[in-house]
Computed example of a mutant assay.
Amino acid sequence: MHQDSSQSISNYYSQTASIWEQFAAANPPLKYAENIDHFAKYKDRRRFTQFMMGLREDFEPTRAALLSRSPLSSLDVAVKELFSEENRRHHHHLSSSNVVLATPRPLASSSD
């Protein structure tokens, strides 16, 4: 799954989480606490990686920063940072719109 060019982080996350819930129904039942912990960590890292790799290319710098952390952030922390980045870009885009200023032209003098 990949984020569409016009899709928000929130919408992309919701779609991805919905698919993960469907897959969760197929997870094997685990009996031992150690296995449950290992599987939960594996599942969290897999989801983190899947979500990061599905982001649009314009999020590459943020994705690279999140993937290079050691230890990796949780998916919740990463999504919050991506929300912030998306909002920052939206506000920057609005504030950097083209602006045209008009000034009155001086009257021509007889020497011109």
Rank of each mutant, 00 (worst) to 15 (best):
S109M: 04
I9C: 04
R56P: 00
N35D: 15
K41R: 09
S14G: 09
H2L: 04
Y32V: 11
R45N: 11
V99N: 10
L66D: 02
Y32M: 08
Y32F: 12
I19N: 05
N27R: 15
S96K: 14
I19T: 11
S95D: 14
G54E: 05
E81F: 05
L82R: 07
D76M: 04
A40W: 00
H38D: 05
N87T: 07
Q50Y: 06
L82K: 01
S111I: 03
Q22C: 09
D112P: 02
F39D: 00
H38W: 01
R56L: 05
P106W: 02
M53C: 11
L94C: 10
S95A: 12
S8F: 10
L94N: 13
K31W: 01
F23C: 09
I36W: 00
L107I: 14
L67V: 04
E57G: 11
H93M: 15
E34C: 07
A26Y: 15
P61Y: 08
T16D: 00
L72A: 14
S14C: 07
D37E: 12
R89K: 14
S109K: 08
M1V: 03
H91Q: 11
L67T: 03
V99R: 15
Y42I: 04
R89N: 12
S68M: 12
P71F: 02
A40Q: 09
S73Y: 03
H92D: 13
P29A: 04
A26M: 14
S10E: 13
N11I: 10
L94R: 06
D58R: 10
R88G: 03
H93R: 15
H92V: 11
H92W: 07
H38Q: 12
S84R: 10
S18T: 14
Q22S: 14
E86Q: 11
W20Q: 06
A108S: 13
Q15C: 07
Q50H: 09
N98Y: 12
P29N: 11
V100T: 12
E34D: 13
N98C: 13
L101Q: 13
A108M: 09
E57Y: 09
A40G: 01
S109E: 04
S10V: 04
W20C: 13
S84T: 12
L82A: 08
S111L: 02
A24I: 05
S110I: 10
N35Y: 09
S84H: 08
S96T: 15
Q50F: 06
H92E: 14
I19Y: 02
P61C: 10
A33T: 11
M52S: 05
T103D: 08
P104E: 10
A25Y: 15
Y12I: 04
V77D: 08
P104F: 11
W20N: 12
S97R: 15
S95P: 05
D44H: 05
S84G: 11
L101R: 13
H91M: 04
Y13E: 03
A25I: 04
S110K: 05
L67K: 07
F48P: 01
I9F: 01
D44E: 14
N87L: 07
S68L: 13
T16G: 01
Q3V: 03
S109H: 05
S8M: 11
E57W: 10
A17W: 01
F51I: 00
P104L: 10
K80G: 06
